[in-house]
Design a binder for these strands. Structure first.
Lengths: 199, 199, 199, 199
DNA sequence: AATGAATGAGGCTTCATTCAT
DNA sequence: AATGAATGAAGCCTCATTCAT
């Protein structure tokens, strides 16, 4: 009587399969036909839920960005010291990137394939995320906890380069968990901010 | 009757324009027609010098890898201390990546677009480069100069992630030269290897 | 539970919007989605009132033909002289075509888009209308009021070509009203039927 | 040794078949596939010679307009009286329209299917043609040869409506040749311009 | 060394229509 | 009376590559 199928199933399946395929072979090399076949529906169904192939990619970006921003805010706004907050946030973004490795692979590889307008929207959202992280570094620098001899902006780019690169080398069945890699990455970051001890 | 154009010019121009276009809009989104138009020749000319579009990309990878390997070897094999050698090598790869920003943009973005066989060749070459750099880190760790609590392999991936990410944010007309960014990056790397001083 | 919308409004709105859109961009270039969106309903509603997109167009033709036939009959059956009757009928069809310019634009432009069977029906109806007008011309020729050196059939096609062409050049906000244009057209027609006065 | 095949064959065949098909079933209802199949080539060949389906239609319009303008100029610039020149031009445009009935069918039926920019170009060209004809009428009115009680502009629209309508009713295998119909049409036009003799 | 016509496969998208509700 | 998800066919166009010259 009352339908239980929410609007989720088909739409969700399309997003999942698209994510998997885009990560596997790239946005441009994945055909809409492959996506809908994998999701078990027809093209018409896809165009019922999404405006275009571009829109599908846009949704993937949106999902990732919303999640990462939410998590970053959570860690950045805690009561711990700035070192602890930055360490926690850094560990988490690595763990999350590893847990959603397909998203990570797609992120920087496919950004330039988005339509110009869509790209602008995504870049702006991404910029906000970047700035929230950078502010954490800057806060530590202002407080004298971190060395200030390298611009917070560059430190952030330095670190996120490493994060985005995870998709290139990390394998889920390798020896280290995402959390462990995250810990190492956070250590590397924090140490590099300790300044010119013996230099 | 009289041919003035030597073999080089056309081939070179094709490679240059292809590099520029692949960086600007991606490999898959650049048509052979666009490349030859930009180079001022016709398709026939391109297929005279290159086997395929894939081959063109392969050449770009080859050129980059040959150059980077040569430079890395130069710095890694010098007589300086391992710290100095790693610092110099790190600075140089950043400066070189920035000087050839289009190559940097292409590198990780388009690797998966190469034909499987070509890809295998490029990955192997890239692996050798990675290992040479990693060996430098491992050498410092063995010698006790660098902390060994994080695998040299991971440190290398950590650092090269930052390097490859340069294409995403560096602008030639920004405030910092490639050498300066290289210096900062090398500092961050070296410091993060100094180990658990006060942690 | 309580439905306020009567059958008419939605059906009428669909016909109006379809007419407007078909005139504006053509039958084939107008999608069912555009029609129902413009009418503020969904596709299901349209398929409730009409069998198909073709049926919608058919209804438009039917409406126009019924109206024009009715008006022509009115003028053609009056008591006036054949010249007066033809002049009045000619004036009126122009004025009416101008008053319903969208219908006029659609008429000959989209006839061939109708399904074969529907087309046959429309053409037959149109033929009856044409014949009624032609008979008026023929009557005048038989009575010696009009010159008979040009077949009534051709005179009719000559005149209706001009009428159907109105959609191409007439603008409601121009200097002349539909009635005025009708008067001029009727004059041109009647004069051309006066025969070889000084020729 | 020396190739004789001019760029004509394939391109010409494509234009011919497209003209035939557009006239037969309309621009929108004719697929590119149907055109190239009819011409015995593949789609790629068509897109080698034409930018788009729209461009193909544009070429058809161009060809017709160039021809008609040339012929009109020829008749309008002769040494005969204005009546004779107008009669000759009117007769000729009808004969030519009948000789190229497919072009005539396409002309007003498909104009609105052209891309906005293409449409603007075609309309401007068409406008020039229209004005040349109208000037002939105006000249006669100025000279007192034709009655001036109806604007030359409207007389021109009146007449060309009839001409464009030819595609709807004329059949090459009917009793009258194009020249004969042209003569009748020209008579109707000229007579309607003789003014209020006995009215 | 280089051209340019031509292929054939495949890509994204649109759309009229149906159907369960 | 009306919704909206889904289909399936078709449409326009792009493109890497080949080949005769």
């Amino acid at each position: 009587m009352m339908t239980m199928t929410r609007d989720e199933p088909v739409r969700q399946r399309l997003l999942s399969e698209a994510t998997r395929l885009f990560a596997e072979r790239g946005f441009e090399s994945t055909s809409v036909q492959e996506i809908v076949s994998a999701a078990g529906v027809t093209k018409g169904a896809m165009y019922h839920y999404f405006d275009s192939k571009d829109d599908l990619l846009h949704e993937i970006y949106g999902r990732v960005l919303r999640m990462q921003m939410e998590r970053l805010t959570h860690f950045a706004d805690s009561d711990a010291s700035v070192s602890e907050r930055l360490h926690a946030a850094a560990t988490d973004v690595v763990a999350t990137s590893v847990a959603n490795l397909d998203d990570t692979k797609i992120f920087f590889r496919s950004m330039h394939q988005l339509a110009p307008d869509t790209q602008k929207i995504v870049r702006a959202e991404r910029r906000r995320y970047h700035e929230r992280f950078r502010d954490l570094v800057a806060e530590g620098q202002r407080d004298g906890v971190f060395t200030a001899d390298i611009p917070a902006e560059m430190v952030t780019d330095f670190f996120f380069g490493s994060v985005h690169h995870l998709g290139t080398w990390y394998h889920p069945d390798g020896p280290l968990s995402g959390k462990e890699v995250g810990g190492h990455f956070a250590d590397l970051l924090l140490r590099s901010l300790r300044g010119k001890v013996g230099d």
